[in-house]
Design a protein around this nucleic acid. Structure first.
Length: 705
DNA sequence: ATAGGGTTAG
């Protein structure tokens, strides 16, 4: 026998708890030795089996288990079952247990924790309850390990936060969740002895169920009543609470504690620190913590990717995702649902499609988080058909996936689809949430569905207990304003339940412009500038309203005032992706290398457009200049330059996609309808709030925008 | 011998 083998065996025998740690190599060495000497010690094989099981060596454990004389003793069973459970072979854990019972081997306390864990992972309530009953029947319910496993099981089952948030204020918490979260506290309270695992389990249970106050209380009690110090498990469970509360000071305190106690290399603490700093808008701290992590696993990468994207740093988020792949870390579901929104915000459809390809290859298509982010991405990139395709294939739809498609339809002017999807959601028994109502109200306002919009607005509080927020009031104000019910909209905003913001008044001001009401516009602009004196949009809109009413002097007065205040108008701008490059155009911009060709194309188009009946609408020119000059200005609007460039530089028949930073003017809207027919192309224009699909002479918005 | 922690979508 080699010296080290002898040492191990002596150690194990001397240590009744057998907590010696051995390497895989040492365990195999020991096994070989026992086989060779045909068993020097009593129960040698079972000893090795427990070592193998501790090392999670399933094949070795199983092999050894099968070589034991029948029936194997309880110890062998619990080792094997533990191994199955930690390999997620949960059904094998239970079938082994059944075999064990059928061989009349008594169940002792050591076998239950693994079985409880297996039923937790399976979310098998019935099995869990029968195991709990057996534990009580056998008088094992005061066992430390079993109680810890039970607390964890009930905490994982109850999903208390989801239950509490799903219902409205008039609802009570569903019975099952109430029972389960109560069980957590009861079992913990009744334990004769508690160790650090008991405290950590109950703290994590409360934290994961959104019971933050209770979780923090338990951390305090753990030190006072329990005389135990928080360890790395405690810290990684409690950090998400400070992320949720956006409490960077307490979060930093935990970070300091982790550093002082040497926990800073822990991957679990690392990823919750990255997340905590990101949620507290301290992205640079997140990046620094991430950089200093000695070992990074997939979840650490997920945290930093999500952190960047949630802070609007889309390119950095994509950069971390690429680095993750480059370092051969396999992306998880979460990696994709974190990074896809970056493509949505950047309107990067080709990248989004590539990621969708990876998702399909990895078999992640049925993940609801990923699917919702894909629906949103396709919709925001202008491809509503693909958004619908993905949505139709979601197996389990929740309020988020429904909202994504409803908002997508709203953005694309398919208001009737949006409304019927909303009704389908209700029929499916999915309770609409705050954001879902924002989506359906937006759909109504974009299509002028005033009555439907009102109805939804009134039902949200009465039937669903959701108090309308600023976004809902804004949508209704927009709905009334666009429909020309300007005075009603004014009264509505003046009397709504929350303080109006500048942007709510801005939408009404835009409506005043569309419906040419100078008097109300003046009242609105006073309100707006009272709230937001620096709002240059207000000046620009009001000056345009004056110009449209040919009150040139008033318009000029406002422009001078703007200049004095140092406020500058954001220039209108459109862009188009051709090949891999983004081409940007400003109104009247002649700097593009192909400007001459673009101009030539525009002139040819204009000739054909006029033959088809296009008449210039100079009302949209808001300067007091002669008609020729007006004509010139309109023909050089940024979207026309971008579209002309798209026509001459892409394959005939393909869809042209343009993005614009402000609303399309009425003349351009008419012109693009003609152009789509003449060149036989679908032209998709996204402005700052929605999409227009021009096809064969008409637009999806039905000329209501 | 058996128990506990971090990340995601509209």
């Amino acid at each position: 026998m080699s010296c080290s083998t002898e040492h191990i065996i002596t150690n194990i025998l001397r240590n009744p708890k057998r907590t010696v740690s051995v390497s895989t190599r040492q365990a195999k060495q020991l096994h070989a030795h026992i086989v060779k000497t045909k068993g020097t010690f009593h129960d040698d094989n079972i000893l090795v089996l427990s070592l193998y099981s501790n090392l999670n060596l399933l094949h070795h454990s199983l092999h050894l288990f099968n070589s034991l004389p029948s029936p194997p003793p309880p110890l062998a069973w619990s080792s094997l079952i533990k191994c199955y459970t930690s390999h997620s072979l949960l059904h094998l854990s239970f079938s082994s247990f059944k075999s064990m019972r059928s061989l009349s081997v008594p169940a002792n306390q050591h076998v239950f924790p693994s079985l409880l864990k297996a039923s937790t992972l399976l979310k098998h309530h019935k099995l869990a309850h029968s195991l709990h009953a057996s534990v009580v029947r056998l008088g094992l319910d005061s066992d430390l390990y079993i109680s810890n496993a039970l607390i964890n099981m009930y905490a994982k089952f109850c999903n208390f936060s989801v239950a509490a948030n799903a219902g409205n204020v008039f609802d009570v918490i569903p019975h099952r969740e109430k029972f389960e979260i109560d069980s957590v506290g009861k079992i913990f309270d009744m334990m004769p002895v508690r160790d650090v695992v008991s405290w950590n389990t109950v703290i994590a249970g409360y934290a994961q169920n959104g019971m933050y106050v209770e979780a923090l209380n338990m951390v305090r009690k753990m030190g006072n009543n329990g005389n135990l110090k928080p360890d790395s498990f405690t810290l990684s469970s409690i950090l998400p609470v400070f992320a949720e509360y956006v409490d960077v000071y307490r979060g930093k305190e935990i970070h300091g504690y982790a550093l002082r106690h040497g926990f800073d290399g822990d991957v679990f603490i690392g990823s919750s620190l990255v997340d905590m700093y990101a949620k507290c808008n301290r992205l640079e701290h997140s990046i620094e913590v991430f950089r200093l992590l000695p070992r990074k696993d997939a979840i650490s990468w997920n945290s930093i990717i999500a952190g960047c994207v949630q802070n609007g740093e889309f390119d950095r988020g994509l950069g971390f995702f690429r680095r993750m792949l480059k370092e051969n870390v396999r992306p998880m579901h979460v990696s994709f649902s974190s990074v896809i929104p970056a493509c949505a915000h950047l309107t990067a459809m080709s990248l989004g499609k590539q990621l969708h390809g990876c998702i399909t290859r990895l078999g992640f298509d049925d993940n609801e988080f990923i699917a919702s982010s894909l629906v949103d991405m396709y919709a925001k990139c202008g491809n509503i058909k693909m958004a619908r395709y993905v949505f139709d294939r979601i197996g389990k739809r929740d309020t988020v996936s429904w909202t994504a498609i409803i908002m997508g339809c709203a953005m694309h002017g398919h208001a009737l689809d949006a409304v019927s999807l909303f009704e389908n959601m209700l029929e499916d028994g999915i309770r609409p949430c705050y954001v879902a109502f924002m989506a359906v109200l937006t759909a109504c306002s974009h299509a002028g569905l005033v009555d439907e919009g009102w109805r939804y607005f009134n039902t949200m509080e009465r039937e669903f207990g959701i108090a309308p927020g600023l976004e809902h009031y804004a949508a209704v104000a927009d709905l009334l304003g666009r429909a020309g019910r300007l005075e009603e909209a004014y009264d509505f905003i003046s009397n709504m339940g929350v303080q109006a913001t500048g942007s709510v008044w801005s939408t009404l001001l835009a409506a005043c412009r569309a419906h040419k009401s100078v008097e109300l516009a003046e009242k609105v602009v006073d309100k707006l500038l009272l709230i937001d004196p620096e709002n240059m949009g207000a000046y620009v809109l009001m000056s345009n309203i004056y110009s449209a009413a040919r009150r040139w002097k008033d318009a000029a007065r406002l422009r001078i005032h703007m200049r004095k205040k140092g406020l500058k108008k954001i220039p209108a701008c459109s862009w188009i992706e051709v090949g891999k490059e983004v081409h940007t155009f400003m109104a009247g911009d002649k700097s593009h290398p192909y400007y001459d060709k673009i101009n030539e194309a525009l002139n040819v188009l204009l000739e054909q457009m006029e033959k088809e009946g296009y008449v210039l609408d100079t009302n949209e020119v808001l300067h007091d200049v002669d008609e020729d000059h007006k004509r010139d200005m309109l023909h050089n609007h940024s979207e026309r330059l971008a579209i002309a460039f798209g026509i001459i530089s892409t394959t005939a028949g393909t869809t042209i996609r343009i993005i614009k930073n402000i609303r399309v003017c009425a003349d351009c809207h008419t012109a693009i309808k003609f152009i789509s027919k003449i060149v036989g192309r679908e032209i998709v224009v996204r402005d700052n709030s929605r999409f227009h699909h021009f096809k064969n002479g008409s637009c999806s918005c039905g000329d209501y925008w």
